[in-house]
Simulated scan of single mutants.
Amino acid sequence: MSLRDFGPNELMFLLLATRWTILLALIAFAGGGLIGLLVAAIRVAPARPLRWLAAGYIQFFMGTPILIQLFMAYYGSSFLGYRPDPWVAAAVTFSLNGGAFFGEIFRGAIEAIPKGQWEAATALGFRFTRTLRLVIIPQAVRLMLPPTVGFMVQIVKTTSIASLIGLTELARAATQVNTVTFQPVMVFGTVSLIYFALCWPLSLYAGYLERRFATGMTRKVEAPLVMSAV
């Protein structure tokens, strides 16, 4: 028997919890993006041991369930004498996991740039880091954008597992509301619409970027762009 019906107060509680879902997704996007850039740079670096290290990082985080990674960050750290806040554990886990996927997205975009660009930059006396920063990445950005925005949809949906360590985001708020209303169809139907409202615009934007850059992706990048980076 329900304690009360699903009404405006319950809806407002879910909407307020949505802000934490959005915040966690933004933290994962920013942290994962920065880690992904570093990982992608290491993946294409001349030093083979560094490439192996980055590849191992990617394989671990892409080859294990993110739920297990979250539990390792939250519960496993107790073996080190530290019990993190759920927010810290979730932010670190999602950033590290996102970094692996972003790393592969960025690496694919970097490797899609014609090798002639690397050779031209080397001929101009650029070192690896400067070539990557001034020549390659500016050209690779348009290739990175569509899959990057598309992966943001996956991040938003995946944040729901943070509820399992006590983080009160949208999924956990829905469980709490359902406990007192016992109206799962109404509660989780509403939550589904909220997730859809968050993810659908991102999916549309990713499709728009993909169509916009489709012609540019198939066209070879011209060498004068290297000269402009000097």
Rank of each mutant, 00 (worst) to 15 (best):
A45Q: 02
L50A: 15
R51Y: 07
W52S: 08
L53P: 04
A54K: 02
G56H: 00
G56R: 02
Y57K: 03
Y57S: 04
F60I: 07
F61M: 07
F61C: 02
M62F: 06
I66R: 02
I68Q: 08
I68V: 15
I68R: 02
Q69T: 02
F71S: 04
F71N: 02
F71M: 14
M72D: 08
A73W: 09
Y74S: 07
Y74I: 09
Y74D: 07
Y75L: 06
Y75G: 04
G76R: 02
S78G: 04
S78L: 01
S78N: 03
G81K: 00
G81W: 05
G81P: 01
Y82L: 13
R83Y: 11
D85I: 02
D85V: 07
D85Y: 03
V88Y: 09
V88F: 15
V88M: 15
V88I: 15
A89I: 05
A89L: 07
A89E: 05
V92A: 07
V92L: 10
F94S: 14
N97W: 15
G99F: 12
G99V: 11
A100K: 10
F102P: 00
G103M: 08
G103F: 09
E104F: 12
I105S: 00
R107G: 07
A109W: 00
A109D: 00
I110F: 14
A112M: 07
P114Y: 13
Q117Y: 01
E119M: 09
T122V: 01
T122W: 00
L124G: 11
R127P: 00
R130W: 01
T131P: 04
L132N: 03
L132K: 05
R133E: 12
L134W: 10
L134M: 10
V135P: 02
V135K: 08
V141F: 02
R142L: 12
R142E: 12
M144Y: 01
